[in-house]
């Protein structure tokens, strides 16, 4: 029978796989992204729906964690008020490196319709953001797409986070 698959890994019958350290590390990182459960407003409902069985984040290796120490993605889902901004930044600081941030929904991106005194006008004023996810509120499919884009971004980056450009954008 004709073999359509070119089997590089098991060529000559040897149990060898060739790759680079970058690719191996990024493969591990991108396929086990653990987001922090950080729902701030109605976007949190969509985030919960993405985590539940119908849309099923678990199949992408994405398991929500309730502690910033165990998480490496922060999904800021909803309106960030100025009173809460201090705690959002503290949770971000408590996350271990490497860490990424998805800003979910119009409110987190720009303040959205809350053009008021009490709302942070875009979470990128206090936290460096990797993915801006538009929508009010974004559908679970959109959040899945954002996470897949983040996976793509991680695979493209160097495994040594110091070589990545975002490192220079860190505020503190």
């Amino acid at each position: 029978m004709a073999q359509h698959q070119v089997n590089y890994a098991s060529s000559a019958g040897l149990p060898i796989a060739l790759t680079s350290v970058d690719k191996l590390v990024n493969w591990g990182r991108s396929n086990s992204l653990w987001p922090l459960t950080y729902g701030l407003a109605c976007c949190a409902i969509e985030m919960m729906a993405s985590g539940a069985s119908r849309y099923d984040f678990d199949r992408m290796g994405t398991i929500f964690r309730a502690s910033p120490r165990q998480a490496d993605v922060m999904i800021l889902a909803g309106t960030l008020s100025k009173k809460h901004s201090e705690f959002a930044r503290r949770l971000y600081d408590q996350m271990t490196e490497p860490k990424w941030v998805i800003s979910m929904g119009s409110c987190a991106n720009t303040g959205g319709m809350f053009n008021t005194y009490a709302t942070v006008q875009g979470v990128d004023r206090i936290i460096p953001v990797d993915i801006y996810l538009p929508g009010c509120a974004p559908r679970p499919e959109t959040l899945q797409y954002a996470l897949m884009m983040l996976q793509k971004k991680i695979r493209r980056e160097s495994a040594n986070m110091n070589n990545n450009t975002k490192q220079n954008l860190r505020l503190v």
């Binding site: 100025k82 901004s85 201090e86 005194y117 004023r125 206090i126 505020l171 503190v172």
Partner: peptide
């Protein structure tokens, strides 16, 4: 004061 609140407080 309100427009710089989060910046002043955090950074």
């Amino acid at each position: 004061f309100a427009s710089w609140y989060e910046v002043d407080k955090i950074f």
